[in-house]
Design a protein around this nucleic acid. Structure first.
Lengths: 412, 412
DNA sequence: CTGAAAGCGCTTACAG
DNA sequence: CTGAAAGCGCTTACAG
């Protein structure tokens, strides 16, 4: 392997000079430059980035943790993230937990060992806040609360839930079934609990503890239920398997169509909605006349299903932009020596942690805005979270979803 | 940042002893071990992997190049690859060309600079063989020929083409349309050429030069055409956009259903097939009675489309296993100092390059097997490729596809 | 503008 | 079994 030393020798200069030429730093005379350059070409010199990494104590690599890259939602998000990170000069290490049958430990360890400059965390985890805050390295969470001081970028699931409710109310749905992820993931914080109604079916408990979760999607279901409740529309929540279990959705759909024959609307992720359309077509059910279907996510699958799905579309590009921005901020803060959580115990958060919940878009609502009146104090307020209310001290960007009307719902 | 030095000082031992304890190498007395361990815990010591990487000149990171992770085919492949690489102790850097709007250069550069230990190449490229062979670092190609000595793992597209033909012949299809990628990608080697038939439609030229391509999927179309030709079934090839352009497939499908009203079978990737089913349902075309649809790939999309698609399923796990195996071999060969292509010019290949085309499964056919009689010397033989026949000197694993009958084809 | 030196944090022969 | 030394290949102050 040819190194700087060889180039220096060949060009008859010192190693430092070669380094300056390679990096374009400092002042080097044109003649020196030319000599060094030609020596580099002659020897086919390629800098070894590992040495540079060691000196800089950086790799320009960000880890992106998702459950599985096969899922269209995470595939789309990861693609957007990759573009954004690339534009900021970072490469992406794909960290999927389900695909490799691993928890996040291995990836967090790489972060600790400086193999990655930061982690964007978009997978489910049961680790307590102290686990996350003790890492002391750049960490940004997507759509979940990990701990005080750890920035969050989230979709506006409350707005999403309200939009779905609006579509259903306008079209006079009378019996709605939601098909979603496993109930356990809704209540993974210490003091939480859920009330099981019947096998495979669960009605979310209404109350503050429902929001003690690292899985904010629950907010969408809760909002939707709340809205349907207000006008007396019947609804059930059916568990599909975990997010990665595509078959789970197929089974859940069959269960619904087999046993809930008066259902006139199904709400699920793109995958659940796609299966639902397929099965309805197979059974000769007329969509949207006898059954409406609403997809939550709006990936390409919403376009490639049996019918163009009416969908609540996530704004992947905006989410990725914000995640990237927060990550850069966090890395830069770390380089300036700002406390990024420090090792050991729960920190009181980062310096930028100013207690402000920021809105990403004009249309978005604060993730934890305590002032909105959607009825009955159902929404989270300061102090309602496991962490003793410090959630509000966490920087939170909230990204609105957009309604895209397709062929699977009736006109208002 | 606390380093080994601090631990050594705290434990009252030398740095080397700490290193030995951390890595479990050599002999250290239990007492020393205990002292060092407790010092590590007290100080919350975490080894800096960057220093280790520099010394080992390795990162245990593999780059996986695909056009876009959003496409279900590449998402599924990447997930399998990630699992396999993880099991071998490697992490995955996601390198998508379309998602970041970049060619492969940046990633190849990282490989050269030792930021990655190897690259698995599964995206389109127009670089000549000399570009690839001059990299001189571990490189394995998926489903494409990059240059002499660069191992290839490929799907058995000839077998796939024959299977599709068989389904169509049994079900008495009379007019088949294939919807596939842009013709240019079929002929990206220097001396190749394609014959354009009409706007948006192309009939692949039959001849040896058709196989002068880094895009082996062409073999599947060519085989299918050959088989249909033999029995006088009419067929056309319609170009959709590039692989990443999902809308391109939707347009192509509409074009076919608008202007080819006697078409009774469509063959395309999962995405093209899914759109086709959707559009057929919209138009009230009876599938499979009046139109059969066959999907090539068999990702989860084949299950989530408007009907369960009859599909030629790729064996993602087997492909990933083989890619991983070849990559490990290549890395180990490189560490032993075996010539891995060396820098500068076209090498004559790696040492393991024994001229043998290996079969991955009992059912698979050699990718370039010259001896099979499928009629008229249409298939590639030694010497037929741009590289002067050296393809045969390249290790090639061929993975068979499996037919999965769904609801979109008639019984035989 | 250029070179000698120290150092990034670890590993591995090599003496003891 | 343990320690002092050299080195992985580069960068950056710091003298000249």
């Amino acid at each position: 392997m040819v190194g700087m030393r060889d180039v220096a020798r060949a060009a008859g200069v010192s190693i430092s000079t070669v380094s300056l030429v390679v990096n374009g730093n400092g002042y080097v005379s044109d003649e020196m430059k030319a000599r060094v350059r030609s020596a580099m070409e002659d020897l086919n010199y390629i800098p070894n980035e590992l040495a540079r990494n060691l000196y800089r104590n950086r790799t320009d690599i960000i880890g992106v943790i998702v459950p599985t890259i096969r899922h269209p939602f995470f595939a789309t998000l990861t693609a957007s993230l990759q573009r954004v990170l690339y534009e900021h000069g970072f490469r992406t290490i794909l960290c999927s937990t389900v695909d490799v049958n691993q928890d996040v430990d291995q990836y967090v360890d790489m972060l600790r060992r400086h193999m990655m400059d930061g982690i964007i965390m978009g997978a489910h985890t049961t680790y307590p806040a102290s686990y996350w805050t003790s890492i002391g390295r750049p960490l940004v969470a997507f759509d979940r609360y990990l701990g005080p001081g750890i920035p969050v970028v989230a979709s506006d699931h409350e707005g999403g839930g309200r939009s779905v409710a609006e579509i259903l109310l306008k079209s006079k749905a009378r019996h709605v079934v939601m098909i979603g992820g496993p109930r356990e993931q809704f209540h993974d914080m210490p003091q939480s609990g859920g009330k099981r109604r019947a096998k495979g079916e669960v009605r979310l408990r209404r109350g503050r503890n429902d929001l003690d979760t690292t899985f904010p999607t629950v907010r969408y279901y809760l909002t939707l239920e709340h809205e349907l409740d207000r006008v007396g529309v019947r609804y059930e929540y059916i568990e599909a398997g975990a997010v990665e279990s595509l078959e789970g959705y197929a089974r859940a759909v069959n269960h619904v169509l087999d046993f809930y024959d008066d259902v006139d609307a199904v709400v699920s992720s793109d995958i659940g909605a796609a299966y639902c359309v397929q099965e309805a077509i197979r059974r000769g059910i007329d969509i949207p006349r006898d059954l409406q279907v609403i997809a939550y996510d709006g990936t390409y699958l919403a376009d490639a299903a049996g019918m163009r799905l009416t969908a609540l579309q996530q704004d992947f590009d905006r989410i990725a932009d914000l995640l990237g921005k927060r990550m850069i901020e966090s890395i830069e803060a770390g380089e300036k020596g700002v406390d990024v959580g420090k090792t050991g115990g729960v920190s009181t958060g980062r310096r930028e942690d100013d207690g402000i919940v920021r809105d990403a878009g004009g249309a978005g609502d604060g993730l934890a805005s305590p002032s909105r009146d959607t009825g009955s104090g159902f929404y989270p307020t300061a102090g309602s979270l496991a962490d003793g209310g410090r959630f509000l001290r966490t920087v939170a960007d909230v990204v609105p979803l957009h309604v895209r009307i397709g062929e699977t719902t009736k006109a208002g």
